[in-house]
Amino acid sequence: MEWSHVSPGDVISLDLSNGMLQGTIHPNTSLFHLPHLEKLNLAFNDFTASEFPNGIGRLSSILTHLNISMCGFSSQIPKDITHLHKLVSLDLSYNDFDFNLRPHAFNNLFRNFTVLEELSLQGVVISSVLPTYLNISSSLKLLDLRDTAVQGKLPRNIFKHPSLEKVYLSSNSLTGQVPWEISLLPNLVTLDLSLNDNLRIQPDVFIRFLQNSTLLKEVSLANVNTVGIQW
C-alpha cells in the first residue's frame, strides 16, 4: 500500500485483505481514527482467537463498506457494529466457529442499517428464532444467513422487497411453510433454502414463484419438503 502524500484525514478506503496480518486489533488502533474512512477490508487475515474490538463504532458517521470475512475472529461481535448506520455492505462471514451475534444485536442490525445493500453473515452463530417481522432495508440485494442457526418461520416481509437478487438461508432450522410472498421478487437471481428439513413449500406457491421470477438462475431446495410438486 502506498502511504506517501497521504495524511490520516485523506484516507477514504483501506484494503488490507490477504495482508498476512496477525495478532489482535486493539480498540485504540489508528484504524478507528480515520475520520473519512468509507471502506475497510480486512478479509483473509489471521486474527485467530482474538475478538473484534468495540472501537469500530467510532466510524459510524462515515463507514459504508466493512469486510472482516475469513479473519478467524472469535467470541461475540461487539454491539457497536449495529451503530454503523451508513453501511451499504457488511461481510462477517467465515470466521471462527464461536463468532456470534446476540439476538438483540441481530435485530438492531436490521433496524439500524436502513441503506444496506449486501449482508453476508454465513457461519456467524445467531441461534435465534426469527421475529415475525424483520426490518430489512428496502435497498437490500444480497441476504446471506447460511449456517447461522436461525430458527422458526420465515418472516413474510423478507420477500416484499423487490430489490432482492440473492437470498441464502440454507443449513438452518427453519420451519413451517415458505410464504407465498416469495413470488413477489421480480429481480431474484438466486434462492437457496436447502438443508432446512422442517421447511415446506406448497406446490401452488412454488409454481407461482417460478412463473414470476423471470430472472431466476439458481434454486436449491435440497432437504426441503416439496411433497406434491409435480416434476
Rank of each mutant, 00 (worst) to 15 (best):
H5T: 14
P155S: 12
L59H: 11
E165I: 06
E117L: 03
S170E: 10
K166G: 05
D10Y: 01
T214V: 11
N196A: 11
I207C: 00
V178Y: 03
L40P: 02
D46W: 11
L66A: 07
T148W: 02
M70W: 12
G19S: 14
L184P: 01
S74L: 00
G72P: 00
I12G: 01
L174A: 06
I136M: 15
R111K: 15
E218D: 14
H36P: 00
V124Q: 12
N187R: 09
N41S: 11
P155A: 12
G55V: 07
K153T: 15
G55M: 10
S173G: 10
L59Q: 08
T48P: 00
I229N: 04
T132G: 11
L193C: 03
P35I: 14
T132D: 13
S170T: 04
L145M: 13
P155N: 13
P53Y: 02
L215Q: 15
D197Y: 14
R208G: 05
L119D: 07
S4W: 14
F73T: 01
T132E: 14
D80E: 15
E165D: 01
L84S: 02
T64K: 13
W180T: 11
G152M: 11
N135P: 02
G72Y: 04
S137K: 10
T82A: 12
F52C: 01
D147G: 03
G123A: 07
S139E: 11
C71H: 04
P35C: 15
R102M: 10
A105F: 14
F73H: 01
E181M: 10
R200K: 15
R208S: 14
S183L: 09
K39N: 03
L42C: 04
I201F: 06
L188V: 12
S128N: 12
L84P: 01
L119I: 11
I25H: 02
D96Q: 06
I77V: 12
N196S: 10
S93V: 04
I62V: 15
L134K: 08
S170L: 03
R58K: 15
S138Q: 09
R102V: 07
K79Q: 09
L121Y: 12
F32K: 09
S194N: 05
S137Y: 07
I68F: 02
S30P: 00
G176C: 08
F73D: 00
Q211S: 04
Y133K: 14
P186L: 13
L193R: 02
K160Q: 14
L121T: 06
S220L: 06
F106R: 03
P78R: 07
S93G: 15
T29F: 09
I81D: 02
P53K: 02
M1R: 11
K217A: 10
D91V: 08
S139Y: 14
N45S: 08
I12Y: 08
G72T: 02
L195A: 07
R111I: 09
V6G: 00
N198G: 10
S17I: 10
L119C: 07
F206L: 01
I25L: 06
K141F: 00
I77L: 08
L130E: 05
N95L: 01
F32W: 13
G152C: 12
P186H: 12
H36D: 04
L34M: 08
S50Y: 01
N107W: 02
V6D: 00
H104S: 13
H36F: 06
V219P: 01
D98W: 01
L119V: 11
F32T: 09
